[in-house]
Amino acid sequence: MDVLSDVIAVTRAGRARSAHVRWHAPWGQEFTSVPGSAGFQVVLQGSCWLLPPDAEPLQLGAGDVVFLPHGSGHTLADSPESLATAPACGPGDHQLSEPYASDTVDRSGDSGPVTTVLCGAYQLDPSRAHPLLLTLPDLIHLPADPGHRPELSSAVQLLATEVENPRLGTDAAVPALLDTLLLYILRLWFSEQPSQKTDTGWAAALNDPSVTAALHAIHQAPGSPWTVAGLAAEAGLSRAPFARRFALLTGQPPLAYLTWWRMTTAARLLRTSNAPLRSIATQVGYTSEFAFAGAFKRTYGTAPGAYRRAS
């Protein structure tokens, strides 16, 4: 798997949820902060304003996508004047009470302009958060751009159709489309960062061919006996320049990231498979089950067997 696919696979927990909601102006809705989650808002029809914490209101139009990777609280409203009267909406309220739902919120009859929003949330596991996600801003705004980002627009429309009109197979389609939407949001944000703003960090790392080659090698074969020299060869650089560049862009030396990914992979295998500990140790690069158990306990504070039983 490539790096971005792995990030989604290891960080997601539970089932993503979404809802198709229509409001008639005037309206306002506060979404409370939900630690351990990531949320999104997509305007399908009409327009609205988003008020993020400690920031100026942001006007949104049809086709705009907003992603909140850290579950930050925010408010949506038909106008800035409606923000002050917005009631709070938590993760258990109507918008996200089911894996998918079609609901209408009408706070003032049918006289005002209609705004239709696709909203949702991904449950994340903070203990498995990839450093790539930790460096994201509190709010990512991908404005509508006709003819641009066609894959994102297609994913939004497919998801909106399934959520608004559930049919046979919707229960399988919605989770897959939610993961696809998340993938496209992250892919586009990382690929569209201006070069002058990404001299360091994961956006720069994912756009750097040498570092990306080394990351792919680690993710594709965590059990290989990698050395800095071996990863440098994958990157097409000599050892010292590679080590400096990798650490500068990702924030970790190559072997520190390798160890972190091995332990993350081991934890996933312990949770999702019945493979023997010896087999898991081999898959993540340890020739000794004892050495693997020691490394795992240093990372997670518990032995692999106890971690599996608790999971």
Rank of each mutant, 00 (worst) to 15 (best):
184 Y>P: 07
275 A>L: 15
156 V>W: 07
181 L>G: 08
176 A>Q: 12
152 L>N: 13
216 H>R: 13
254 P>S: 01
165 N>T: 10
234 E>Y: 02
252 Q>N: 07
212 T>Y: 12
183 L>R: 15
232 A>W: 08
271 R>P: 01
199 D>P: 00
189 W>N: 13
256 A>P: 02
191 S>T: 03
167 R>P: 01
185 I>A: 12
240 A>L: 09
272 T>V: 08
267 A>Q: 14
233 A>V: 05
174 V>R: 01
256 A>Q: 09
207 N>T: 01
234 E>I: 00
201 G>D: 10
154 S>I: 00
165 N>I: 05
178 L>D: 04
233 A>C: 01
193 Q>H: 10
260 W>S: 12
172 A>Y: 11
236 G>W: 08
190 F>N: 05
180 T>N: 14
237 L>G: 00
197 K>W: 13
262 R>H: 05
172 A>H: 09
192 E>G: 07
233 A>W: 04
261 W>R: 11
203 A>P: 00
233 A>T: 10
218 I>H: 04
218 I>D: 02
206 L>M: 15
235 A>H: 06
205 A>W: 11
149 R>T: 07
184 Y>F: 10
188 L>C: 11
170 T>F: 06
274 N>Q: 14
226 W>A: 00
203 A>H: 05
169 G>W: 10
174 V>P: 00
221 A>D: 13
227 T>S: 15
177 L>S: 05
203 A>F: 05
164 E>I: 00
150 P>W: 12
186 L>M: 06
255 L>P: 02
207 N>P: 00
163 V>P: 02
277 L>S: 13
270 L>I: 00
174 V>G: 02
245 R>G: 05
274 N>M: 08
280 I>T: 09
252 Q>S: 13
172 A>I: 11
191 S>N: 08
209 P>W: 03
150 P>D: 12
266 A>T: 01
244 R>F: 08
194 P>C: 06
199 D>T: 14
230 G>F: 01
221 A>L: 10
202 W>K: 08
202 W>H: 09
232 A>K: 11
265 T>V: 10
220 Q>E: 13
150 P>I: 04
184 Y>V: 04
165 N>W: 12
229 A>D: 14
256 A>S: 13
250 T>C: 02
246 F>V: 00
249 L>Y: 06
207 N>Q: 12
241 P>I: 02
256 A>G: 07
266 A>H: 03
240 A>Q: 14
173 A>Q: 05
239 R>L: 07
231 L>D: 03
206 L>G: 07
174 V>D: 03
207 N>W: 02
249 L>R: 10
235 A>C: 07
192 E>P: 03
268 R>C: 02
240 A>N: 14
179 D>K: 11
230 G>D: 06
263 M>Q: 14
188 L>A: 12
177 L>F: 08
162 E>N: 03
222 P>S: 04
198 T>I: 11
225 P>A: 13
186 L>K: 10
258 L>R: 03
257 Y>P: 01
189 W>T: 04
217 A>W: 12
246 F>H: 09
266 A>G: 06
269 L>D: 12
171 D>I: 09
